[in-house]
């Protein structure tokens, strides 16, 4: 029995501990995502930026990249606008 378990690679003795750890990690990330300070608005921001820039330059939706990064207490919002090549 024991050898079969170890062969499958499943730690059945304390799988609940593994579950708890995985949950704590994923929920820490998801709670940040939905806290309103970050990614929730990114998609909308991108759409609005596309609309504004499009008034002046002909661009595609994918020419604007919006990226959010958080490292410890530092948050960086990066917006990259790629203009089409001149013909």
């Amino acid at each position: 029995m024991v050898s079969l378990r170890s062969m499958t690679g499943l730690n059945r003795e304390n799988s609940a501990g593994v579950a708890k750890e995985r949950l704590q990690i994923i929920l820490a990330l998801e709670r940040v995502d939905s806290s309103g300070s970050a990614p929730g608005y990114l998609l909308e921001l991108q759409r609005e930026l596309v609309a504004v820039v499009s008034r002046y330059v002909k661009i595609d939706v994918n020419d604007i990249k919006v990226h959010f990064e958080r490292q410890d207490a530092c948050e960086v919002l990066e917006v990259k606008v790629e203009l089409p090549e001149r013909r």
């Binding site: 059945r12 003795e13 304390n14 799988s15 609940a16 708890k20 929920l27």
Partner: peptide, 16 residues
């Protein structure tokens, strides 16, 4: 199953 470590305990769920 909680005693066997196979299921999240009440405390685990509450903690989270």
């Amino acid at each position: 199953r909680v005693a066997d470590g196979q299921m999240l305990s009440i405390e685990d769920v509450q903690d989270i």
